[in-house]
Nucleic acid binder design. Structure first.
Lengths: 335, 335
DNA sequence: GAAATTCATGAAATGGTTTTCAGGCTTTTA
DNA sequence: TAAAAGCCTGAAAACCATTTCATGAATTTC
């Protein structure tokens, strides 16, 4: 049915081996022969059978991506970056969403292994420890994107969540805020949310503010959860002067609740987010946040994964992408 | 290196054929034999070599997805729906972003063909005509998601853009708005934006409002473009009473510009969007919009593609998912 | 001008599965 | 009890590319 190398060989009047050599531009073939072959390829519109190639070579030029909650703007941009850089480097992407469930993660891992992926990007955060042991066992090159893994063997690229969260709290404290509340991520999220928590604690200590776990309301990174977290915060701590949400969507959700209650942001309460998604520039009030680039993170992840795959020298296992505190309208200095 | 069917066969003391039959649960194998084989499979942790299977069977359980601008919330949810339903039905996804460039689309089409995908979902809108002829030529089952294709052979699933845009304009007119301006999508986007434009024209005619092309400013579905489109609109048509942006992000961008100019929404100008992304509920003012579910659209697309792949009877080539006008705070009745 | 290299090519083995075909064994039927 | 039918299994071909090894031709070297 399909045209195969055999057909090309016949038309060009050469052997299979020669066609293969031309297609993989081996240097060992006379220019004239190569031209002849190329002509046949063009004429027949020959397309390689990838499965046959993979079967023989055991390399697929395929990168697996397993993520969760990828519809979130930050992660959607991360995926975009991954795709762009992967394509640039000649990889195709096979993409699976785990919904944050270990079983699905495992499942995709198996499927991807069966497809002989060259490497894998993990953007899933809940069960990374279990995943890790599987991946190590499979011996597949792996990069964790957007999460810090405390394992010297594992590469990861992420914003420095500790430092960034620290910066934000420091900024709030310097602006005179002492009565803070937080909307953290899911407790299951051991990579991003826990790290940000660490940064917060650090900054609190240096600002001599007591760390009160009660003041950390759990959200799940959605608008909705920010909204209801703000509600809880206001009922428990009506005197709060600043709310730090661990991502921008939750901050927007919180602001929305406060507006509903006729509480002015930032006059009555300052609200800040994390990620720096585009949306934050367009809402009212524009959101003060920590800006990081998901797209850049994606590019970098593939770059590193590619290095691992090609067994190139790697300078550093843990890569931090830049972050920046951007102060907009949702924060106020206290008198 | 890897464990193959041969190893399983040897351990189980049967032939390759039998192992294969067990794995594909052919009925022609004695239960006892099957158990023996299964035990060997488990013991060796055998994983099939997918490339070999694809090579032999010419079917991959792989679905290709080519999209553009997938970081937009609506499309990110569409992708999520596609992934969920594909997984449910035993497909894996190979995903490529075309950036709206024909060359990249072509390129991915080739790659995917080489990988023997079982079917393809196209979410790319600019060059669908050229794509179409390629896809037809390749004889790959295809579904266009989020765009209406006027070709009886081609399946597509989308919101009824004409009707929805019509509804929105009708709503505005009935609220007393006559002085309208529009932020449309890229002129290259022949699927969504042009269809919405048709709906608008239809409604204008019925409301006896003159269709003035000047009043349609081109955007590209980003916040930013909505912002600058609003700027253009206000300078050209300062008396406008309502702005209809062809997606929510542009509406939010427009609102942001108006706020900057101290123009009150909805008191001075009503602004409406399209898509009904979650964000619209949380901004100030909450956005009046046409709500459709990207996620549902994704599910449905895979469902239909699956039918085509399995050559099942298809009731209808063109499927419309529901839409709903949701009126929130960004619109006003004129006196 | 003969021997030694280098160069260009082809034949054949290989990768791991599915599937057809044939054959042996057991069970049913007359 | 012999013939027919049905069931289960194995051998081998097929899918399509890559790669090793061998070979013949062309070039270099002494």
């Amino acid at each position: 049915m399909d045209v195969t190398m055999k057909d090309v060989a016949k038309l060009a009047g050469v052997s299979l081996s020669t066609v293969s050599r031309v297609l993989n531009d081996s240097s060992l073939v006379r220019e004239e022969t190569a031209r002849k072959v190329q002509k046949a390829v063009d004429k027949l519109d020959y397309q390689i059978n990838d499965s046959a190639r993979i079967l023989r070579t055991n390399t697929s030029n395929l990168i697996g991506v397993i993520g969760a909650g990828m519809e979130r703007p930050f992660l959607a941009n991360l995926l975009k970056g991954i795709e762009a850089e992967a394509r640039e480097r000649g990889y195709a992407l096979i993409y699976g969403d785990s919904d944050g469930e270990f079983e699905k993660e495992q499942n995709y891992l198996n499927i991807m292994k069966q497809k002989k992926i060259d490497g894998i990007i993990l953007i899933t955060t809940n069960y990374y420890n279990d995943l890790l042991s599987i991946v190590k066992n499979y011996q597949i090159p792996v990069v964790f994107a957007s999460g810090y893994i405390n394992d010297p063997q594992i590469s990861c690229v992420t914003v420095d969540n500790v430092a960034a969260a620290y910066d934000m709290v420091e900024f709030l404290c310097k602006a005179g805020h002492k009565d803070l509340a937080f909307i953290k991520g899911p407790d299951l999220d051991l990579l991003a949310s826990q790290e940000r928590l660490r940064g917060v604690k650090l900054a609190l200590r240096l600002s001599e503010i007591r760390y009160e776990p009660r003041r950390f309301i759990e959200g799940d990174f959605t608008f909705e959860s920010g909204y209801s977290a703000a509600k809880k915060i206001m009922s428990k701590f009506p005197d709060v002067t600043a709310i730090f949400a661990f991502n921008d969507e939750m901050a927007v959700g919180a602001i929305s609740y406060l507006r509903e209650q006729n509480i002015k942001v930032p006059e009555d309460i300052s609200v800040v987010g994390f990620d720096g998604i585009e949306l934050g520039e367009y809402i009212d009030p524009a959101l003060t946040t920590i800006k990081q680039s998901g797209y850049q993170l994606g590019l970098k992840s593939i770059e590193i994964l590619n290095n691992i795959i090609n067994q190139e020298k790697i300078e550093d296992n843990k890569v931090f992408i830049p972050h920046e505190l951007v102060v907009r309208e949702s924060t106020n200095r206290l008198a």
